[in-house]
């Protein structure tokens, strides 16, 4: 490397841009460059064509656009709208197929006949009047089915068809012996395994 002997070390504070450069930059801020409309139009169309090729799912060499790159081309508001719609749809389906009372029961479609949305306070008396027991003035949502519920349904079925839908615990549209068995099975189900 050749070093000029005329090179003089200058202090950073003394460095100044050339005057011509400074004046030219100042004029640039004030002057708006003229772009003919035809040139503007050509550039715009070229940009559209280029972006249109990228948005189609194949590049010029026939390969696929990477998925990440594809996602970036989707307008952000559309992506958020799609995600929100998906979440709402999933929540709706979960709510429909897994009502809260069925979480502790046999599984999909099993409904606790002690559905307090339709039931009322318990009155000691005939089995045909058996409804959920209130707890401290309010309706309980936590009373678990027991064998007496199965027994009561079995007794009622002996007297004829049972029309109350809340007894259709297996969700097959019919209240019959299978619902009796389903209640009995639920009554003896061990929570969290059989270990003591």
């Amino acid at each position: 490397m050749r070093i000029s002997h005329n090179h003089e070390e200058k202090d950073d504070a003394d460095l100044q841009a050339p005057a011509e450069l400074v004046s030219a930059l100042k004029r640039l801020a004030q002057e708006r460059p003229f772009v003919p409309p035809t040139v503007d139009e050509v550039v715009f169309r070229a940009a559209q064509q280029h972006l249109g090729k990228v948005q189609s799912k194949r590049t010029e060499d026939g390969g696929r656009v990477p998925f990440i790159q594809f996602l970036r081309l989707i307008p952000r508001w559309k992506a958020w709208l799609a995600a929100g719609t998906t979440v709402i749809a999933i929540a709706f389906l979960v709510y429909q197929f897994f009502p809260s009372e069925s979480r502790r029961t046999l599984g999909v479609g099993f409904r606790n006949p002690l559905d307090f949305a339709r039931g009322g306070p318990v009155r000691e008396g005939a089995a045909s009047d058996r409804t959920p027991a209130p707890m401290q003035g309010g309706l309980s949502h936590e009373r678990r089915l027991d064998i007496l519920d199965a027994f009561i349904l079995a007794k009622r079925l002996q007297g004829g068809p049972v029309q109350e839908r809340r007894w259709d615990v297996n969700g097959d549209g019919v209240v019959d012996e299978r619902d009796v068995r389903a209640i009995a099975v639920e009554a003896v189900r061990l929570d969290k395994g059989g270990r003591s």
Binding site: D146, I147, L148, A150, A154, A187, L190, G194, R195
Partner: peptide
Amino acid sequence: QHERVILAAF
């Protein structure tokens, strides 16, 4: 094969 069971009958 475990130590706990719930029995019920009617």
